[in-house]
Amino acid sequence: MVADGEERISDYLGARRGGGAGFGGGGGAFVPADYRRVYTGLAAVYEAGLAPTEQFCEWGSGFGIVAALAAQLGFEACGIELERDLVPQAEEFVAEHDLDVPFAHGSFIPESAEHLADVQDDLATLGRGVADGYDELGLDPDDFGLIYAYPWPGEEEIVEQIFDAVAARGALLLTYRSTEDLVLQRKA
């Protein structure tokens, strides 16, 4: 499944570069995680029963690979993606792997926490001023026992602050870092 996802990403990015348009049509960027490493982290969390619930959300789901891996492990997975054109890519990916994983277009930042993403960084990729995806999923940020994110360098602290503001007590945040590390945190 990971190899299929990586091939889809490569084909998609190659077609976007070949057509002269940037990712999402707006010149943005997409950097995939090391999905095998992320799977190892997800599996460790699942097998040890560390998450308080099996509800999982991928913040910035891209092609939906991490949400698919979580579903394959047994989590009730979903994803929220800011780039509209990636949502059908993720839906197609999970459908072809016979997984039931819903994806929503929108920001993972609920309106109540948008102030935490007010940064003076022109490279910030956080979705501010965009409706969040929770209504479309019929869920709230505090419904999830485990949230996964791959923040851009320099945005890790903001993602952690948003998690602390909106996640349920005891929920876990698993982040993949540009240093190729996985960081697991629990909300106190």
Rank of each mutant, 00 (worst) to 15 (best):
A3W: 09
E6S: 05
I9Y: 06
L13C: 05
A15S: 12
G19K: 11
G20F: 11
G25L: 07
V31L: 08
P32M: 05
D34W: 04
V38T: 12
Y46C: 04
Y46E: 04
L50H: 03
P52Y: 04
P52E: 03
F56V: 05
E58V: 01
S61H: 01
S61E: 01
F63T: 08
L69Y: 00
A70D: 01
F75E: 03
F75S: 05
A77C: 11
E81Q: 06
E83P: 00
E83N: 06
P88N: 06
A90N: 03
E92K: 13
F93K: 02
V94C: 09
A95P: 00
H97D: 07
D98P: 01
F103Q: 04
G106M: 06
S107L: 04
F108Y: 15
S112Q: 13
A113N: 11
E114S: 11
D121Y: 12
D122P: 12
L123A: 15
A124M: 10
G127P: 13
D132V: 10
G133S: 09
G133M: 09
Y134Q: 07
D135Y: 08
G138E: 08
L139S: 15
D142Q: 12
D142W: 14
D143S: 15
G145W: 10
Y148R: 08
P151C: 13
P151S: 10
E155P: 02
E157F: 09
Q161F: 01
V166Q: 05
V166T: 11
G170V: 05
G170L: 03
A171R: 05
A171N: 02
A171S: 15
A171L: 02
S178P: 01
D181G: 00
V183L: 07
V183W: 00
L184T: 04
A188N: 09
